[in-house]
Design a protein around this nucleic acid. Structure first.
Lengths: 205, 205, 205, 205
DNA sequence: GATGAATGAGCCTTCATTCAT
DNA sequence: TATGAATGAAGGCTCATTCAT
């Protein structure tokens, strides 16, 4: 029984990362990827099904991790005592956002792939998808705290979407600009402070 | 003058618009475009030089118009009396932003092309380019009013960039979501109000 | 009645010369030629019929002139008194060959076109054609002087061809190498001297 | 090992040979070549990289063989005892030149390709390249025998070039004229004899 | 499982020439 | 006559994917 040659999987991923980063998904060549990984195109198909599968193998775990992180944090928050929920969310989420930046910088290449090289991929709308999740959680949060922002019409799901879209676009600029992690912390926290005022007007009657 | 078959120019543009919208720049086929326009591929080259030239013919005037609009507004503002400049900029720009939405909806397809179908094109970084212009004008504005936001470090060009990026990403979501114009007015004005608070903290010492 | 615009003919020729020299006949573009001449492709067709016609217009007169020169010299020689014909032909043709070099340098570009840029043209076999003429004249010369080189088999038309081919290839090297006219005189006369010995063994029993 | 359909390689080469011979390099069509060989255009690229690669596959080995032959003969000659070198080189090279003709006729099509169908190819200047090699060897030979032809100025590298160019042009005429091998032997040996006299005047003070 | 040759549709682009204006 | 837009075939080449070995 033939076994998969060890180390090839990783080499292909590495080679693919570079090729996708350089040329984007569509213009990347599987032949080049295989060659630089020291293997054959066929073996890419054995391991990754597809060009799309290869891209997903690179980026999927990072996306899943991010979604999982969102889910977990949401759950943790949901189980806080009611008074704490209504407390200073801004303060509460301070660490959270720092974790997010950490996560981004732990997977910088992958985020670059997601944000700049994913056209033609299931991940083309990465920001948009993240925003959808974020909005869903925000809605839940607002509802669970009994805040009347939605009921009163001060916020609508669509507007929350635009708001979230604006926020995350700002956040992910740190990737496009290849900021240092320190600069990223700084900018993201400024961005949050900037948004804080707006949120206050929405959440307070 | 050699004959130029009438109406073909427009038909090609229309055909190209549809093809680019459907498949994006790279995957669009000039053959298909020519066929659907009832011409030959060669005549596309006669009229538009290039695949890129064809895309630019669709989208260039709209971008130029937008830049011109930016420039003009900036100039008008620059010539206001000093006290008016320092006045309520939010109120002042209310109409302006409405004009912007009007402009977007007057050229909806083109903005869709710019925002979703321009990869592989000189317009791939459309939002980013607009943001650069916007930031340049914002810096000028801040400096010309004698505000110390920049000097004090409450704002940096990089942070203004992120802020602007966040704002325009939010604005252009109305295109991605195919909102009605009415809904767009509404959302954009909400977005501005939301940002107002943040700006206040930056501009006031 | 519309007249041909004056000066265009010459401008087209000049533009064509440059384009053909740069890219060779096949890769030259009529559009480029027309453009650089400040006229339209159509007007090239009006004046020169064809891409081939254009090339011929450049090069044909020079070829014709050369052929005419060959013919005239041959005629002059034919009418020399018999004893003079048998005299030192080498000496006699000394001036002739100098005239040839002069002719080449009076039409240097055209010879370059003929020798390096004529593939795909009726002039592709220029040297070969010249050689044919030269051989025909040589045969006539040998026969008219009563020399038995041909009859005896010391020379055959085919061998004369090869000989002539070798000689003219050597001569036209001065074009390929962009020699100065002075250097060309020098080399061609050396070449003739070199060939002189060989000829002597053929012509003398 | 992935299957390589047997016999296709040869069929492609054969098909290419015919197409190149008929139309020359530039006007030859890879589609036609592939079709006549019963393959796809793609497989030509797999096997030969390029249109150029295909031409080179046909002609490269023959050129290399020729260069190698030159090199070897030169080396053998270099190691002859000094007195033999100064002996009758004409006699010595008698067999050599016969070998050359043999080589040409063993690869007749390839030489035709090189001499008539190579425009647009790295082999466009085949004769010129051979001449360069030949001249280099000739210079070495002259120097190594202590002959003063170069020192005295009776010969210059440039003139040797022209001479060699003339000689090989004559030799390769046998290909252009589709001579029989017998006729070729005959003509080439006549040509050598013809050149002999000239060489004598150059080499003897 | 690994290989990599084969596929063949498809890409953008160029061109000499024609011909309506 | 001059123009130059139109033609449309043809060009070389690339690619993801398949599959015999």
């Amino acid at each position: 029984m033939a076994r998969q040659i060890e180390g090839v999987y990783e080499k292909v991923l590495e080679s693919a990362r570079l090729e996708f980063l350089e040329k984007g998904f569509k213009d990347a060549s599987l032949r080049t990827i295989a060659q630089n990984a020291g293997t054959s195109t066929g073996s890419i198909y054995t391991r990754f099904t597809d060009k799309n599968g290869l891209f997903e193998a690179l980026v999927g775990p990072v996306v899943d991790g991010l979604k999982e992180w969102f889910r977990t944090e949401q759950e943790i928050f949901a189980q806080l005592p009611a008074d704490q929920k209504k407390g200073d969310v801004f303060e509460y989420t301070n660490d959270k956002i720092k974790n997010l930046v950490d996560y981004i910088y732990d997977h910088f290449d992958e985020f670059k792939l997601l944000l700049s090289c994913a056209e033609g991929t299931a991940f083309a709308d990465f920001i948009h998808d993240m925003v959808e999740i974020d909005v869903a959680y925000t809605v839940k949060y607002i509802e669970s705290t009994g805040n009347d922002a939605l009921v009163s019409g001060r916020a609508t799901p669509e507007f929350l979407h635009i708001l979230s879209s604006a926020f995350y676009s700002g956040v992910f600029e740190v990737v496009a600009h290849d900021m240092t992690k320190a600069a990223a912390y700084n900018h993201v926290s400024r961005l949050r402070r900037f948004f804080r005022g707006g949120w206050a007007t929405i959440l307070s009657p």
